[in-house]
Design a protein around this nucleic acid. Structure first.
Lengths: 238, 238
DNA sequence: CGCCCTCAGTACGATATCGGACGAACGCCT
DNA sequence: AGGCGTTCGTCCGATATCGTACTGAGGGCG
């Protein structure tokens, strides 16, 4: 691990934890590539590691007993997984995996658990993060209930855009349809709506954001609650 | 407050916290009636008290900037509010209010915050509860996305039934329509479906559960995840 | 007893989304 | 260059749900 300097770490949570806590973690931090599809935590299994992405985007997906799926949250360098470790729960019923590839750090789950119990400031920080994610999940729920597909798609693109460096997002309609819990052709149609309005440009496997402000305008009240809460509790996402 | 004995308290969280912690809380516990509609916590306002229901049911509702609403969680003697206090967040963007009247205990928010920072066991218990509620919210989200109204209604009735003593639940279609984020007439129709199948009996302002097992069968994968998680992390709901 | 307000039931056309299937385009691999 | 799997665009009818409005039933209160 040579040298990991806290002030140049891009993951917000690692960067914002108290320096003396980071020093305890540092020797155990492992820099890892996070390739698309990599599953950081599986349903009902005790995770061996906690992950802190530097680049890339991860999705948290809930699955029902009969195999229906829906995304309940998304995070990148603003977060970590699994929050179950933070909340003294050891495991959770979700699947968490990389959706846009990148890299990041990981540490043994047992160490995180132990440090959380010992270091008050660390626990408070991660608890606030858990709160922010709960808010994200809650507003995803609201959005699923009341918004049309194209608005939900706009919301989703915005949230991805917040967590990438450029304006390009690589993914298939098939994948998006699972995230939004809709049919695949519905995604195609919704993308055409956004493209027709010049908010995005879309081609095989790629979405390119062209006019972010207009996207936000279109998403209206579907977007923003998580971001507000995160800034209040943790700090700027960017 | 005369005498509040921990072992006869019906609220699970109060009953399960360590005895020495309960002793510290006891002098500050206030027994309060919780009438229908009473708002225990309002959006973006710092709550003065934390509430622990003994009887009755509370709803947590998320509201968008444009006034669209959807219920993201429900709790009774299994829980408390606001979890924001537990997660070092002080306030949250939800509205939490009584939906079926009852009574319970409350304590100053400041005292809870302080005790959580001091008492490890208390924090762990409440963190696990926060995790359980996050799971509930996540699966509400899934349900909103993929299930038909009658199934969501069945899920909702089951969750209420878990938290009441009898088989009767008092509420109007109008209210239910807000909880499920659907039209009011859709609730009427869905109730008729459940009634036609003899799962429930319904009349003006009241729903009566007649065949709980059949309701569970009907709700299928929409119901159960929160309950499993709660039992694992806290204990029996009942 | 009768008024009135709340609540429930019903009807209507409109529409967003579904479920499923098919063919076209792209691009990787041999 | 040709083949083939993946991804995308489109179409069909079916249907769940919507938005709105109107009617009727229940029940509290003067």
């Amino acid at each position: 691990m040579a040298e990991v300097r806290q002030d140049t770490v891009r993951n917000n949570l690692l960067r914002l934890m108290p320096a003396n806590v980071f020093e305890q973690i540092r020797p155990h931090l492992e820099h890892v590539p996070l390739s698309r599809g990599f599953e950081m935590s599986a349903p009902l299994q005790q995770p061996a590691h906690a992950y802190f992405p530097e680049v890339g985007i991860a999705s948290i997906v809930a699955e029902s007993a009969e195999g229906q799926k829906a995304e309940i949250g998304i995070f990148g360098r603003d977060g970590m997984t699994p929050t179950a470790l933070v909340l003294d729960a050891k495991k959770d019923p979700y699947s968490t995996f990389m959706q846009v590839e990148g890299y990041g750090y990981r540490m043994p789950a047992s160490l995180l658990t132990e440090l959380i119990q010992r270091e008050r400031e660390l626990q408070n920080l991660l608890n606030r993060y858990a709160q922010a994610m709960a808010v994200q999940s809650a507003y995803t729920s609201l959005s699923n209930a009341v918004h049309h597909i194209d608005v939900r798609l706009a919301r989703w693109i915005l949230m991805c855009h917040d967590r990438t460096d450029g304006d390009e997002i690589s993914l298939t309609h098939e994948f998006l349809s699972i995230m939004l819990a809709v049919r695949r052709p519905s995604v195609t149609t919704a993308l055409h709506v956004l493209e027709g309005r010049k908010f995005i440009y879309s081609e095989r496997g790629v979405i390119i954001v062209r006019d972010r402000a207009a996207l936000e305008e279109f998403a209206r009240d579907a977007y923003g609650k998580y971001e507000q809460e995160y800034e209040r509790l943790i700090g700027p996402i960017g």
